[in-house]
Amino acid sequence: MPAVNQTGKREKIKLVFFFLILIIFTLLLLLMPRVSTPLIFGYVIYLIINPAVPALEKLGVNRLGSILIVFSSLIFFSTYPFIKIVPTISSEVENIQYYVPKIEGFVTKKYKELKYEVKDKTSYEIDDKYFYEAVDWVKNTSGSVLLNVPNFLASFLEWIFLIPLIVFFLLKDGRSFKRSFLRLIPNSVFERFYHLSYQFNRKLGDYIFAKFVEASIVGLIITSGLLIMEVRFALLFGIIAAVTNIIPYVGPVLGFVPASLFAFAEYGYGTTSGAIITLYLIANAIDMALVFPILVSKIVDLHPLTVVVSVILGSQWLGIVGMIVSIPVAAAFRLILDEVYKEIYQDN
């Protein structure tokens, strides 16, 4: 039947065209970080606050009204922390640079003590090369990270105008964007694609929301605990703990290392250092025992091994960002694999 052949051919063209658009869009996102970073941040914020809009709509407020309420309360509640936090962090970052030599001296001293002890007991002399290479690496990377914080904050100021704009239009026109995108999907893959992308988006939204809450709880506990103990750089360490907490398993340790080094160098092996370590242990215990099982684990039911492997792979490709992104990406792969599995085996 020629008509059917014609249809099949047109369907193939549509399929190619559709996947080409997807690929080009992804490439553009990867190639233009200056545009894509605020876009991604905007999308993440959109995913976090979006559930509030239907909740308000259910109360009878119309769509634009509920968007305006959600959006203006977001602006209202985030302005004060920004004005307060940004200068504090900038000054803390500037000040902590002066502490780096002190911490380095402390670590070197400890290393030498350990080296002599090992030599005394086993008569094996540890080669200094590895230690100094490691110290150099840590110093350079942490130095570059810390030096980059002001730059990051500067682009942050640019984003302060850009991200709210993106969030607002995603809230307002998100549905019509989605509808016009759905119109492009060829008939033969429409049902599956729509279903899959919806499930993935919901999972991603839930995951990001859960992680956001988890990180805020950990950050809040640590910052307030350190403030009560009157430890310097409380806010900075709290934020480091919150951000690294997003990374599964490795994150809490990464967040703990700078604070513990600082504590030992500054306060020695005394009560204060002990208190700081206890604080981190308590924060992570609360996270592991209460927050994680209730919020996160139900959303992304990946096997711990899968989590570890995907975090390692992510760190290899994209560093810290890769570690953070790895879990949602792994969850997406799993979703697609599940669907393919059903497709292949359900028929029998």
């Binding site: 039947m1 008509a3 509808r179 008939n187 033969s188 429409f190 049902e191 729509y194 359900q346 028929d347």
Partner: peptide, 20 residues
């Protein structure tokens, strides 16, 4: 969602998973 189908085009196949 308004979907247009050409003559002879399959909307879905028997045994396929469906959500629509």
């Amino acid at each position: 969602h308004l979907r247009k189908f050409n003559a002879g085009e399959r909307i879905f196949n028997q045994g396929e998973l469906g959500v629509g």
